[in-house]
């Protein structure tokens, strides 16, 4: 892989990088958590000494019951919060102590999808997706080229003029995915992406996320939708009370079964 070779070259030129997690020779870790602990006010432990790596291009499910720390984990990757202890690397950068003004540039490497879609109700499908490019200062010709492409990818090219409330839940989530992916991020984060959808719509969304993952986008999906996890048979990281209790290649959801 090109980026793997790049990392090797980097390691040859700067041997000190060899000791840096997230920049191992030959392997390119997209995300690394190293003994990460996050405690909220009033002593609620959201994450407790969590350590794991996610490689470039992986698709990982973060599973666990409500309150197990899934959302906190995503918030830490997005740098909406910083850990109390431990270190986090994203795309080779340590982000726990990132300068405040660099955070927007970190987020440009990521797309994010939520259970509640978070579309702008007064903007059309096209405008919602274009907004993500517009506010990071992309010129109009780039917007005009990239938005139709990504709408084609999520299968909504024909509905570009519709407003979100005219769409079904599954279609709204597709718009949200288009918005997350339109800037071709390195990482796609999804927090309960099928939480508001019925099973058949959910599997469509899951297939779409899988397709995006196959373009090389590292994809992290936090979910407690057991059927989706079992259907996909991909890597599963399980959390319980903030602790990492299981990390399995080709895993299943594994609760209540």
């Amino acid at each position: 892989m090109a980026s793997g070779a790049g990392a090797t070259l980097l390691a040859l030129m700067y041997p000190e990088f060899l000791s840096v997690p997230g920049c191992n020779a030959g392997l390119y870790e997209m995300i690394t958590f190293e003994n990460v602990t996050k405690t909220y006010k009033r002593g609620v432990v959201a994450l407790n000494d969590v350590t794991f790596d996610i490689e470039k291009g992986e698709l990982v499910f973060i599973v666990g019951p409500s309150g197990s720390g899934k959302t906190t984990l995503l918030r830490l990757i997005l740098r909406e919060d910083s850990p109390d202890k431990g270190r986090i690397w994203v795309a080779g950068k340590e982000i726990a102590h990132l300068n405040h003004w660099r955070i927007p540039y970190l987020r440009r490497n990521m797309g994010c999808v939520f259970q509640d879609f978070r579309l702008l109700p007064n903007k059309s499908v096209f405008e919602n997706v274009a907004f993500a490019l517009e506010v990071i200062g992309r010129p109009q010709h780039v917007i005009n080229a990239q938005v139709p492409q990504v709408l084609e990818l999520v299968g909504l090219a024909k509905k570009r003029r519709n407003l979100p409330h005219e769409l079904s839940g599954g279609e709204q989530q597709r718009v949200a995915i288009a918005r997350a992916f339109v800037n071709r991020p390195l990482i796609l984060l999804a927090d309960e992406p099928t939480g508001n959808l019925d099973p058949s719509t959910s599997s469509g969304i899951m297939r779409l996320l899988d397709r995006i993952n196959r373009t090389g986008t590292t994809t992290i999906i936090a979910t407690h939708d057991a059927s989706m996890v079992d259907m996909m048979r991909r890597r599963v990281v399980a959390l319980e009370h903030g602790a990492l209790v299981r990390d399995q290649e080709r895993g299943i959801y594994g609760y209540g079964t």
Partner: peptide, 17 residues
Amino acid sequence: RREIAVMKLVGATNWFI
């Protein structure tokens, strides 16, 4: 507030907002 939340999420700079 919705627009602002989305802008932060997709990496608009603080000054842009």
